[in-house]
């Protein structure tokens, strides 16, 4: 059979359009068929930051997370990969800092992915490489991510990092139980879904000496996190954006 260039181009374009059209129909069907997630947990974290022993040089949560997830130590600050990190109260809650005790406003808080109930990052992802699981965890598929960084632009919490170079050379001591990433993908906190699957709590929570990190199920009224949220005033980051963060800061 002899194909002219024109015929070849038309056939390939039609095939591509056909495949993607079919895929589109399937994905819309799947989205329409997915029902509510009743009976599942909704994982959340409360940060009781005044219990944090940072002043004694404690960095255990960050170190535990780094090791558990093979997070690279990137020398350039601009290209840092951060899953859980410290930031001063006054930069996290600038609107609630005026006239507040400086001891509080200069206190560091632990920041991580908020695992929003209505996440802007998953909404914008063009490939479904980041999505929200039934138990509230915002997941990442590092094999599907094309590295467009639209999710980073959409995240109002700076919770996402990008591998600007190959991260594998910059991991001090590789944990063989967790995947490393390739260059050119976005990564972030996964609420230790791999540990939750084994019935363990997140690595940062387990390693926290001062019990400043409280992890639990928001759908369980008897859980520690629900108890503490009932009894204490808790703040979320930028709740007015309607993202519904699952990380709370206890005052």
């Amino acid at each position: 059979m002899k194909l002219t260039r024109k015929e070849f181009l038309i056939t390939s374009a039609a095939t591509l359009a056909g495949i993607s059209g079919t895929k589109l129909v399937t994905s819309v069907k799947a989205a329409a068929a997915s029902t509510g997630e009743d009976g599942k947990p909704r994982w959340a974290m409360a940060v009781d930051f005044q219990k944090c022993q940072w002043d004694q040089g404690c960095n255990q949560c960050i170190a535990a997370c780094k090791h558990a997830h093979n997070i690279p130590d990137v020398p350039e600050k601009a290209h840092e990969v951060k899953w859980i990190w410290k930031e001063l109260y006054k930069s996290v809650f600038p609107q609630q800092s005026e006239w507040v005790d400086p001891a509080l406003t200069s206190h560091p808080l632990m920041l991580l992915c908020n695992h929003c109930s209505n996440p802007p990052c998953t909404r914008v992802c063009p490939t479904g490489a980041t999505w929200k699981r039934g138990d509230g965890i915002v997941m990442m598929d590092w094999h599907r991510c094309i590295g467009c960084r639209y999710c980073m632009a959409a995240c109002p919490y700076e919770s996402r990092s990008f591998d600007f170079g190959d991260p594998r050379g910059e991991i001090a001591n590789i944990n063989p139980d967790f995947p490393t990433r390739t260059k050119g993908v976005v990564e972030k906190c996964n609420f230790c879904e791999e540990r939750l699957g084994r019935g363990q709590c997140p690595a940062c929570v387990e390693e926290c000496r001062g019990h400043a990190l409280i992890f639990g199920d928001l759908n369980d009224p008897a859980s520690e996190i629900r108890t503490v949220l009932r009894s204490r005033y808790a703040m979320q980051r930028s709740p007015e954006l309607g993202t519904g963060p699952s990380v709370f800061y206890l005052l």
Binding site: V28, R144, C145, G184
Partner: peptide, 29 residues
């Protein structure tokens, strides 16, 4: 310009293989 901005340009066809109508980028394409 979109292609050179991608961290993983070899995977660009994922936009067609896993179409995401909730993403504006899909509609832009």
């Amino acid at each position: 310009f979109i292609m050179v901005d991608l961290g993983q340009p070899a995977r660009v066809l994922n936009v067609l293989l896993y179409p995401a109508p909730h993403s504006v980028m899909f509609w832009d394409m």
